[in-house]
Amino acid sequence: MSEWIEIGALDDIPKLGARIVKSPAGCIAVFRDKDDSVYALENKCPHKGGPLSEGIVHDGKVTCPLHNTIIALDSGEAVVEDFPAVKTFEVKAEAGRLLIKANVLQEAS
């Protein structure tokens, strides 16, 4: 099995938007920033479990739709509060395709 798994096309995700991937490690939110950089985080806000994939994306951050907790997309850390960091996964865009690191399959949720 290769090291990366294809999950779809970059254009399946709108700029400043996100889609989710279901995985053995739970729901993963895959974000696309304005500059087409992509990030993958567990789809669960450390505050009250809100679906981060539904938040507003802005400059490398996402604002949780439930109570406006702001999470940095690269580190998974809350910008203001002292919450535990959201789990991040490796994801990349190559030639318009979206690839996620295969070790996501080994992670237990």
Partner: peptide
Amino acid sequence: ARFQPIADLSLEVAQ
């Protein structure tokens, strides 16, 4: 389609 997950890996088996 935008309301569905982009991919479902939950049934894939880890090698």
